[in-house]
Amino acid sequence: MRLRIFLEPQQGATYEDQLAVARAAEDLGFDALFRSDHYLHMGDTDGLPGPTDAWITLAGLARETSRIRLGTLMTAATFRYPGPLAISVAQVDRMSGGRVDFGFGAGWYEQEHASYGIPFPATARERFDRYEEQLDIITGLWSTPAGDTFKYEGKHYRLAEGPALPKPQQGPRPPVLIGGTGPKRTPRLAAKFADEYNVPFASLEDTAAAFDRTRAAVSASGRTAPMVYSAAQVLCVGRDEAEITERADRIGRQVPELRENGLAGSPDELVDKIGRFGEAGAERVYLQMLDMSDLDHLELVASRVVPQLD
Rank of each mutant, 00 (worst) to 15 (best):
V199T: 10
A202D: 12
R213T: 01
G180C: 05
N198Q: 08
Y197K: 06
A164F: 05
S203T: 02
Q170V: 03
E161H: 12
T181G: 15
P183T: 13
Y152I: 04
D195V: 11
A202L: 08
V228F: 05
V237Q: 04
K167G: 04
A208Y: 07
P172V: 09
T214V: 15
Y229C: 06
T245L: 12
R158C: 06
N198M: 08
R173A: 06
A217F: 14
G179K: 09
R223E: 10
D212T: 14
A208L: 02
T186E: 00
R173Q: 03
A217N: 08
P200T: 13
V234H: 14
E246G: 05
S230M: 09
P183Y: 13
D212L: 11
R185K: 14
C236D: 03
G179S: 10
R188C: 05
A242N: 08
P226R: 06
G154M: 05
S219D: 05
R173T: 13
P187S: 05
V237A: 09
R173G: 01
A210E: 11
R188S: 06
G171E: 15
A225W: 07
G154A: 06
H156D: 10
E205W: 03
T224A: 14
G222S: 08
F201S: 04
G179I: 03
Y152C: 04
A225P: 01
P168D: 08
T181P: 00
T181Y: 06
S219Q: 13
Q170I: 04
R188M: 12
G154S: 06
Y152Q: 05
P163R: 13
F193M: 11
E241A: 10
P172M: 03
F201L: 15
G222H: 07
A210I: 01
G171T: 11
A220Q: 12
A191Y: 10
P175H: 04
T245M: 11
R188I: 02
E153N: 08
V228E: 09
S203N: 01
V176T: 02
V218P: 12
P163W: 12
T207I: 09
Y229P: 00
M227K: 00
E205Y: 04
P174I: 00
G154F: 07
A164M: 01
A225D: 14
K192V: 07
Y197M: 08
P172N: 05
A164T: 07
T214C: 14
P175T: 12
S230H: 13
A242C: 01
A220N: 09
T186V: 15
E205V: 00
G180V: 01
R188L: 12
R173Y: 04
F211I: 08
A202W: 14
E196W: 13
G171P: 01
P168H: 03
A209T: 01
G182F: 09
T181R: 13
S221Y: 12
P183A: 15
F201C: 10
A194P: 09
E196K: 14
G238W: 01
A216S: 09
E205C: 02
V237H: 03
P174W: 04
D240G: 07
G238C: 02
R185A: 11
S203C: 02
A231E: 06
P174R: 01
F193H: 15
S203R: 00
P166Q: 06
P172L: 04
